[in-house]
Design a protein around this nucleic acid. Structure first.
Lengths: 391, 391
DNA sequence: TAGATTATTTCTACAATGGAATTTATAAGA
DNA sequence: TCTTATAAATTCCATTGTAGAAATAATCTA
């Protein structure tokens, strides 16, 4: 029972003490930007009187504030917009890789204020937790000390606290959240990196206000996330390659596990680099492959168009089975989707009934901070929703 | 504005007049069988006192009743089980085909009490509505007159009232619900047949209590339904062949729309009959094909195993993208899944990561009344949920 | 400037809830 | 058989959250 490490006392705070209508008002304003009281009342099916009663204490507590009024145009008294005070709290969002940990510090709306990273000198859990503490300290000193920490990583997790398995670190059953909490004294939430990215899009990104959308990330592997009926769909299988070996091209190359033309053998950075390096007879980087493709170099064009079409077929499959209102594309390798946009559309058309609604694609920048921002959203959610995350 | 037909006055009644906690209690008991008051209190997070307050009027109104007590074994006062009075109301569920309309009359739990069918002498909307009225009258006379009518059909619908398009009847924009309401005086709900089947499984079948599951139906076409986060996922694209042309076998036969080895060209009754008739040099029926396969006839075995493997790959795709806790297989052609069960499992294994949870399959009988029961659930839902269906 | 329109606040009556105390019905053990 | 422990269900009351009406505020329009 006695701790080896001098664990810092864990600081837990909650946003609203009330978990009922008061929190619902605060959440609605947090997620849907500045809103008038009457608009919030409409959305939550509350009376105008109730809205005054609920919003006043939130404003007095410094959680919300009035930020001006609607630019008229309509008859009647203009409405006062209320909004959260985003800088009241800071959150740390980290992404763990095999060789480094990257992090950002954000406000309550997951806007990034600073970012930084540290190399990992060792993959030992304790050493990694030390690096995380140092990174969080650095980020906190640069802007504001965070209220909570979210950590995203590619792997399977248990109860937001335990790394069940993470092949890229060689980890099994590592209590990472606890290690970090001991060192920082801050509540820490773990989540699969793709799920975290999906939560960002859900709360503050392209999926805001949508009841259904999907996320696909490109990079070293293929990631997949789903929101349906206004909540993320995830189970313990998340973090296993659910779509990594998706069959796309019966005549494609063979992947490491013997699948011919699976997503991994066509869409990943490694697959594209390998294919183009082989074709050109010299090693090329991923960025170089993209540049060549954009410039119209024939071999690159062919490799990227094949990949793009494969991506399109994967997107069509997702659209057919989950009926999303939108698909968000992200990840370090997402440039493929822009460079081979036409091939992507061609691939979608191949497997999708022409009578269906056109598929709405949103392409993100692919920067590393997007992963971190996703992790920060987890921290934000654990703070504003209180114990509901505990499961 | 004046009606040609002497429309019967529409009888609308609701289950509980209260839409709040009182209805939640009634719904919980309806969907989850006999429950003790304390169990309901736990599930709905209500105090025991509230449960007494809420259940007493429901019992006095004849909606619920006490049905005995739990067989002890535990210390303490035994709990009184309360249950709905299922025979208090009857519902008609119909399935519309190109040549006939089939129907059942059920109780509040979608238990079938009688079934019947009528041939369609004409596909004119008015004539079809007449046949529906006659069938509902017949069913009502045989057991109890229904409170509401649910109609399932393969097509795209609008607002549960209008057939937007149904190719098998050559219909576009037919106000079928209105036509039936004019003739019967009963509230009428339309729904896509696969969605209706999915709702049955969701409320009273294998999906009861699950937050995620999928449904696949086999027959003249391939149907697909999805429940995620405890609600059916459906949009206006439902009723279009979302999975009908799913690519399964790059070396398979070509379907009517030029796809090689798509689901339609491999899994449908027509595809199997065609493939086996060709192989044997004589016409065979679907049932005959199944019998031959079961008996081990080599050509039939091969055709069915190929189809079974294709089905397995489709199921793997669904499982990978929607992470269901269970997949329900139904439809007239569902016998394929039993006869070629091993091939199905083989197909699943091909496209699914071996580390994932084993996929739980539920195989339904494939009888016609299953479609009708699904439609009845729509009627039940519209009754017990009140106006919430109106959307 | 008066009237229309919409937002917000104030005030009050009402309804729903939790919680504590009580009653009821069983099993387990003396 | 009697007592005790346990759990279900009921009763009752204090509290709270809510709607609803009326009042007030701030704009546009005629």
């Amino acid at each position: 029972m006695d701790e080896e490490i001098d664990a810092m006392p864990l600081k837990r705070s909650t946003w609203t003490e009330d978990a009922g209508a008061s929190r619902a008002v605060a959440l609605e304003v947090l997620r849907n930007g500045p809103l008038s009281r009457s608009e919030v009342a409409r959305r939550l099916a509350l009376s105008p009187g109730s809205l005054t009663r609920l919003s006043t204490p939130l404003i007095r507590a410094g959680l919300l504030r009035e930020v001006g009024e609607t630019s008229g145009g309509r008859v009647g008294r203009p409405s006062q917009l209320i909004d959260v005070v985003p800088n009241a709290q800071a959150f740390a969002g980290l992404k763990l890789r095999d060789d480094r940990v990257m992090g950002v510090i954000t406000d309550l709306r997951a806007q990034v204020h600073k970012s930084a990273e540290r190399p990992l000198t060792s993959q030992e859990p304790e050493a990694v937790a030390d690096s995380i503490r140092d990174l969080v300290d650095e980020l906190g000193a640069e802007w504001k000390h965070p209220t909570a920490i979210g950590i995203g990583l590619g792997g399977r997790l248990a109860a937001h606290r335990m790394v069940r398995s993470a092949a890229f670190l060689g980890w099994d059953d590592v209590p990472l959240a606890e290690l970090v909490e001991q060192r920082t004294g801050l509540p820490t939430i773990l989540e699969n990196d793709v799920v975290a990215f999906t939560e960002y899009e859900h709360w503050f990104g392209a999926g805001r206000g949508l009841s259904r959308f999907a996320v696909v990330t490109l990079g070293a592997g293929i990631g997949y996330g789903l929101v349906a009926n206004d909540a993320v769909v995830a189970d313990e299988d998340h973090g296993i390659g659910l779509v990594g070996h998706w069959p796309l091209d019966p005549f494609g190359p063979v992947c490491s596990e013997g699948h011919r033309g699976c997503a991994k053998s066509i869409l990943t950075e490694g697959a594209i680099v390998t294919a183009l390096s082989g074709a050109l007879g010299r090693p090329v980087t991923y960025e170089e492959a993209m540049d060549l493709g954009e410039a119209g170099e024939p071999a690159a064009r062919r490799v990227l168009d094949d990949a793009g079409e494969g991506l399109g077929r994967l997107l069509a499959a997702i659209a057919n089975l989950t009926m999303p209102e939108c698909i968000v594309l992200g990840g370090e390798g997402v440039r493929l989707a822009s460079v081979a946009r036409e091939a992507v559309e061609r691939g979608i058309a191949k497997d999708r009934d022409p009578r269906t609604r056109k598929l709405d694609l949103v392409i993100r920048s692919g920067s590393d901070t997007e992963w971190c921002r996703g992790a920060a959203v987890l921290a934000i959610q654990s703070f504003v929703l209180g114990a509901r995350m505990a499961a």
